[in-house]
Write a protein that binds this DNA or RNA. Structure first.
Lengths: 166, 166
DNA sequence: CTAAATGCAAACGCTTTGCTCGAAT
DNA sequence: ATTCGAGCAAAGCGTTTGCATTTAG
């Protein structure tokens, strides 16, 4: 609230994040909190859920409400900037849309998420849809895996494995 | 409450449903409502959500609470009798576990769900996991498709397309 | 200046749970 | 008789929304 945080005075503060640029391109009104959220998401290398984004945003500048994060994340999704993912467990996760088509392998022991893409799978998916009499308009592939027993899994990680991904 | 509904007097009422048999095998206590829910699920050829099950159960005998449906469905899942599916949209859907490994194609216009299985995909999934350094312990494949424009889709069916599937 | 975004708290939809009463074994 | 299930209503969790205030363009 005082001078230390310096809300949004100098626009030359820091270079616009990738998402911020995309927002401007699309003519979205850029508020301080949108810029903040845009940065958090641009910098994210994982698949944060809304609360992750909220926490990281607070850590950077502190003055966003979770409602705004929800609204912004939805706005970005509607504008094709973000993609909403559903890995089960209630929370929605997000990642940049322009990272291209990819799927996920979830390490069931650590909760870590690995991205991958595969041509062969794309082709197979299309073939399967066709065989069933449909045009493929979307797909979702998730693999759940476990590292082959090298060391005994120390922490089965129950609630909220989130966080680290990639 | 009165004689019309005849709660659970004669055990010879009707032959036990498949799920009821499985429950008995596993030594689960069989109450009237469990028998009822077991029948609804055994007869279901689609992927009902809890409320579907609840409604169908009420239609058959009327005297179950939705809490019991939730509890029973969870019990059955924990006993490997049911599988919980998440097709997005908040509601969990269920189907018999012993229908074997299969995947789903969701008709995005009608919400209808088509099941299919594919050897080639299974093999590919295993290969992908291996390539990433994991043992495959689970997978989820969903295709979203649209019938090639033969007739214009009459009802885009937004909320709760549920119901018919297969 | 005007339309739109934010914050806050209340509302929401699905699911779970605490507690008491009733039923299954 | 004893243990476990059922019913009901309240609570929980992630997400959305109404409304008054602030802000971007």
């Amino acid at each position: 609230m005082d001078s230390r945080t310096r809300p949004r005075a100098t626009p030359a503060e820091s270079p616009p994040s990738r998402i911020e640029r995309l927002c401007i391109e699309r003519g979205l009104k850029m508020t301080g909190q949108r810029r903040l959220i845009a940065r958090v998401l641009s910098d994210a290398e994982d698949h944060p859920d809304v609360e992750d984004v909220y926490r990281r945003a607070l850590a950077l500048d502190s003055k966003v409400s979770i409602a705004t994060v929800y609204r912004t994340v939805r706005l970005l999704e509607e504008n094709g900037i973000l993609e909403k993912r559903d890995f089960g467990g209630g929370r929605a996760r997000y990642d940049l849309a322009d990272r291209g088509h990819h799927h996920h392998l979830i390490d069931v022991d650590s909760g870590r998420v690995i991205e991958f893409a595969d041509e062969e799978f794309e082709a197979l998916a299309r073939r399967l849809a066709t065989r069933l009499g449909f045009d493929l308009v979307g797909q979702r592939l998730e693999l759940f895996g476990r590292r082959p027993a090298a060391e005994p899994p120390r922490a089965p990680a129950r609630r909220r494995p989130s966080g680290t991904g990639t």
